[in-house]
Amino acid sequence: MIRRIWAVVVNTFIEASRNKAFVAMAIIAVLFIVSSLAISQLSIEDQRIRVLIDFGLFSLSLASNLIAVVLGVILIHKEVDRKTFYLVVPKPVRRSEIVAGKFIGLASVILMSALIFIAVWFGVLHTRGVTINIELVKASYLVLLEVMVVLAVALFFSTFATPIISGIFALSILVIGRIQYILSDLLSSPKGFFQHYPATKLIAKATLAAFPDFSVFHVSRQLLLGINIPAQYVLSATGYALAWCVLFVALGMILFERRQFL
């Protein structure tokens, strides 16, 4: 099974890394981080480091999530549309293994580009006299967990929808996931809309449960305030991301297993 999945991983890795959109986005991401040097100069003296860190995490998240959505939504659909799957599906490989291989292959490419990005970013911070500590590494790691969940969501939609529909759905889930904490705050507030209309509470709670909460993966505020991120938090965030990845990839596998190649 490992060899069969590995065959798909190798193919996906080569495909994604040679994709012009990926290369363009990776270059833009690096330029983004280098330009943060200029942007930080516009802020007041004691805020410059803060801007560099905040801007760096934002850029890492934006670039990696965009790559995950853009490449993720076309991953399965393109092969169905171009009928290249006619060469793979009849091979001795399970369809679920194809989906798993696609996810791992693209995740590897995104991680590789993110590592290059992080190396450039840390280099920029170092030249500005910032000590690269474990908290920065943890914050970057958490962003990458978010990107993996976004990739799983994009892959899931790609198994049955067109790239445009998949892209809209994946980005919608990302936005909903990012603002979940607002909904959560409103729900726990003693006054407000939900307390005034208790029936809507159920819908709000269902929404919270149905979508991943991406705010879990953003700790830039703690980082800037100098609050350490507990290892326990990182571990539970890893479990949370893993659970959502497994759920979306498994749903994608089920749909792909039932698919007919007309």
């Binding site: 590995w6 080569i14 994709n19 009928k83 290249t84 060469l87 009849p90 091979k91 001795p92 490989v93």
Partner: peptide, 30 residues
């Protein structure tokens, strides 16, 4: 499927691969 080989009608290929890379990936499935 391990004992079956198949050529579809008017196949489309992974055009970013070389002939050797493509056959190498196909061979991995076996």
């Amino acid at each position: 499927r391990l004992k079956t080989g198949f050529l579809p009608e008017m196949p489309n290929f992974y055009d970013y691969l070389s002939a050797r890379e493509f056959l190498d990936i196909m061979a991995r499935f076996y």
